[in-house]
Design a protein around this nucleic acid. Sequence first.
RNA 1: AGGAGCAGCCGUACAAUCGCGCAAUUUAUUUGUGAGGAAAGUCCGGGCACCCAAGGGCAGAUUGCCGGAUAACGUCCGGUGCGGGCGACCGUGAGGAUAGUGCCACAGAAAUGCAGACUGCCGAUGGCUUUUCUAAGCACAGGCGAUGGUGCAACGGCGGGGUAAGAGCCCACCGGCAAUAUCGAGAGGUAUUGGCCAGGUAAACCCCAAUCGGGUGCAAGAUUGACAGGAAGGCUAAGACUGCCCGUCAUCUUCCGACAAAUCGCUUGAGUUUGCAGGCAACUGCAAAUCGAGACAGAUGAUUGUAUAGAAACAGAACCCGGCUUAUGAACUGCUCCUUUAU
RNA 2: GCCUUUGUGGCGCAGUGGUAGCGCACUCCCUUGGUAAGGGAGAGGUCACGGGUUCAAGUCCCGUCAAAGGCA
Length: 118
Amino acid sequence: MLPKQYRLKNKKAFDATYKQKQVVSDNLLTMYIGKKKTDTAFPTKIGFVVSKKLHKKATKRNRIKRLVREACRLEIKNNALKNANKYMSLIFLPKTAALNANFHLVQNSVKTLISRVR
RNA sequence: AGGAGCAGCCGUACAAUCGCGCAAUUUAUUUGUGAGGAAAGUCCGGGCACCCAAGGGCAGAUUGCCGGAUAACGUCCGGUGCGGGCGACCGUGAGGAUAGUGCCACAGAAAUGCAGACUGCCGAUGGCUUUUCUAAGCACAGGCGAUGGUGCAACGGCGGGGUAAGAGCCCACCGGCAAUAUCGAGAGGUAUUGGCCAGGUAAACCCCAAUCGGGUGCAAGAUUGACAGGAAGGCUAAGACUGCCCGUCAUCUUCCGACAAAUCGCUUGAGUUUGCAGGCAACUGCAAAUCGAGACAGAUGAUUGUAUAGAAACAGAACCCGGCUUAUGAACUGCUCCUUUAU
RNA sequence: GCCUUUGUGGCGCAGUGGUAGCGCACUCCCUUGGUAAGGGAGAGGUCACGGGUUCAAGUCCCGUCAAAGGCA
């Protein structure tokens, strides 16, 4: 799990992020980017969405969610958010291919997506 | 040794580094604790909460061999009958078809009417004809339910007697039914006797018996606090001010508005473990010990090493219990049965 | 969390317990100079799956699986 201050929580925040319509994606993940920060002290919040349509079993959905979350945690810890730090929020949506991926693949995917943020 | 039946056990462990939920305190890069046997399906039964409801009946729903267990159950335990297996053992949706109604395609003479139109058998008796005068023929009266390439099923089966031909008409055995006796708490078992009238289907309607207030589900519900809207456009249909038009309100569309709720319910309970006692058992009683998740974008993960087996299977709590059903990995244990071989 | 409905040919759908059908699509033939339309013939079904009741089940009963939808 992420520390609490990095979690994207309520529905309004999710809606506002989707509304920006800034999307980056590769074969495993899709990432939505929120608004630009006005206050630099404000931490970048990250949300994760795994739809029931992706897979029926709760354990599989939990598994992929945890892998993506763990990858993000390591990025925050290593201060590797780079340009993504300018934005208020990020949302990750795993794709079907991510269900069978191991941690290293997911980690690489997260890294490349973050590096592509301008 | 091989095969089989029943029952039981575990549900990865340990270490290092980086992390998360909750609780506690000495408020610190502390300590403790943190998913399941099915947490699943939502198929039953309860607890709990709120709303509605005076009481009773009808209706409706559910259950359906007997007895017991339980808060309750469609669950469980023990038994009875029936079916399967050489056997250990297993399965069982098992009330009523003489309360009534419906249905039984095709085939078949006939599918429920104490049937016989048809196909047949006989024609002893009565009638007619012939005649060697005691027989033959006719098939008119009449007798019969044995025969019928059917069908899931044909009004008990099979054998013998009997007869003109036949028939439970009579007899033996078998099956079913009823009565009596007896054993059992009961389902029912056993024995004897009786007379041959009885098709199937109730997971068709129905009858009988028993049980059941109805609805909504913890996002139930309770408490505290706050109350955030603004701008632009449309006026077409319907509404209000008003009978009509304008206008306004309401309404509709678009855009903007991101940290703007919190606490209780919430986990101490038909709890868990152990011992003793009762009971064949399900289960119950008593005593002692013990506290083992409680989130709200929602906690158990990642990487590496070691151990089995190079990489565990099915799978994730969301108010809580009792069941049922379904999914599933590896190793192992106990009891029993059958076959073969040896002693 | 709690409910509801539906699974039948490639697709969309009918179907009182008694031989599984319709439309479109598909294949072949006719028609045309050729195509479409039209006409004729044909193929294609574990009635989602597993049990049960019944002489007989797509239909009745029980369980499972899948899909779609609803409430909050």
